[in-house]
Design a binder for these strands. Structure first.
Length: 445
DNA sequence: GCGATCAGCT
DNA sequence: CACAGCTGATCGC
């Protein structure tokens, strides 16, 4: 199921449900959240079956798929069991599947799905952040344990994006404070912050409330903010604020250099993802901007020591002259993933993220926490050679293309896109609320 | 011409 | 390391 690894599903037959996978052949489709990498294959013309999602996702849905047939949407209430009748493919017999969405704290509307049926229990996390200190996770922990009722979780489909001990970063609350510190230590600068079409609203709200300013966003993004219920903290007027959130794809060193020709501007990149290792970057002390530049100058002729990236401090990095990288991540870091697996102790784990160059196999790290069936698969899975400094062919190829005239043209075009605010088409809003059907709650199963 | 898919880039 | 998402090329219809 889903875009997970190839191991056959033990419990559930194929052809029953799909999570974040949109090809035909399933009886029920579940959407965890609206980021593009989870909606590949989904379009306004899609009509392979019923689509289940959270209330908030259903409200945001028409922004991404304006002409989608909303009669196919079914809203599942977060924290409640819902009953769905499906057909067992092998026998043709009807069977009940129960599903409970649980807040994934990844982006607005994002949920994990806990399934229960003849196959036992299965949890599909989608993308998720499990900040143990937060109240939200405490209630999530309680909800998961109460839902499982001491039964075994057969299969955990896990967000393994940062499933490697090398990934260690602070909570989003801490990272948000770091961002505010950067802004206040640059009182005479404009600030641009890179964001995507959905996510990191908490960060922007924290900035807005702490500094008592509005944050500029582009028109489509303001529509999203309004749907999320944030009215007073955001604006599309450039004159009323020095802090602007811009699309990540328009956020480059060239953009910052261009902006600095007319106005002193810094960029902030909130991301759990380290920037490319060849970039010159340093840990900086936000609380004294003068010492930042000193340090940068000091080490600038010592490239060899800057090639490695360490995230263990969760520290702020400097990229180029104007860009700060702050460890604000919407995915769980390794210790959080570990806590999550220790809580659930499933029989099987499958990573939902696989990449060509580095398979981060959760089984490698968490086998000892799992059921006996893991042992069989472990013998087939080699741990990734994460500490061997792999001889990556890809890196060589990538470097060769960076300076092609073609890519320069494209970057300029993107940067221009960012300035042409008035051109941007304002997103269509539709009266869709009444057309979206709630799936019946089935709290007492 | 249009949609789906993929490669490339950041 | 690999996020989320844009752009452009290609292919089939």
């Amino acid at each position: 199921m889903g875009n997970s690894c190839e191991r056959p599903e033990r419990g559930m037959e194929s052809g029953m449900i799909s999570v974040d996978k949109w090809s035909s052949g399933s009886q029920a489709y579940f959407l965890t959240h609206l980021h593009a990498d989870h909606t590949v294959g989904l379009s306004s013309a899609w009509k392979h079956g019923l689509l289940f999602c959270s209330r908030l996702t259903s409200r945001l849905f028409p922004c991404k798929f304006p002409d989608f047939d909303l009669s196919l949407l079914r809203v599942l209430r977060v924290g409640s069991w819902h009953s769905i009748t499906l057909t067992t493919p092998s026998s043709g017999a009807p069977t009940q599947v129960y599903v409970k969405p649980i807040d994934a704290h990844h982006c607005p509307g994002s949920v994990m799905y806990l399934f229960r049926g003849k196959f036992g229990y299965m949890l599909y996390t989608g993308d998720f952040r499990w900040e143990a200190a937060g109240n939200e996770v405490q209630s999530g922990r309680t909800m998961l344990l109460d839902s499982l009722k001491k039964r075994t979780l057969n299969t955990l489909h896990l967000d393994n994006t940062y499933c490697n001990p090398r990934y260690s970063f602070p909570s989003r609350e801490v990272a948000s404070k770091q961002v505010v510190d950067i802004i206040t230590s640059h009182p005479d600068h404009d600030v641009i912050i890179a964001i995507d079409s959905l996510g990191k609203e908490d960060l922007l709200l924290y900035i807005s409330r702490t500094l008592n300013i509005k944050v500029w966003v582009w028109p489509e993004r303001l529509q999203i903010m309004h749907i999320l219920g944030f009215r007073s903290n955001f604006t599309t007027q450039t004159t009323v604020t020095r802090v602007r959130a811009v699309p990540r794809y328009s956020f480059t060193t060239e953009t910052l250099e261009g902006l600095n020709k007319t106005r002193r501007t810094i960029g902030i990149m909130p991301s759990g993802l380290p920037w490319p290792a060849k970039a010159k970057e340093k840990s900086v002390n936000v609380f004294g901007s003068s010492s930042c530049s000193e340090r940068t100058a000091q080490t600038s002729n010592d490239d060899s020591s800057n090639d490695t990236i360490s995230l263990e401090e969760g520290s702020i990095k400097r990229y180029g002259k104007y860009i700060y990288v702050v460890p604000y991540s919407a995915h769980s870091c390794f210790s959080e993933i570990k806590d999550f697996v220790e809580l659930l102790r499933p029989i099987n784990i499958k990573g939902i993220v696989s990449s060509a160059s580095c398979h981060i196999d959760p089984c490698y790290y968490f086998d000892h926490l799992c059921g006996t069936q893991q042992a069989f698969w472990r013998s087939h899975q080699k741990p990734d050679n994460e500490d061997q400094g792999g001889n990556t062919v890809e890196d060589d190829v990538r470097e060769g293309d960076v300076h092609s005239p073609y890519s320069v043209v494209r970057r300029k075009k993107r940067a221009m896109e960012f300035f042409r605010v008035s051109r941007v088409q304002v997103m269509r809003r539709r009266s869709h609320g009444s057309k979206i059907t709630d799936a019946a709650d089935d709290d007492d199963e």
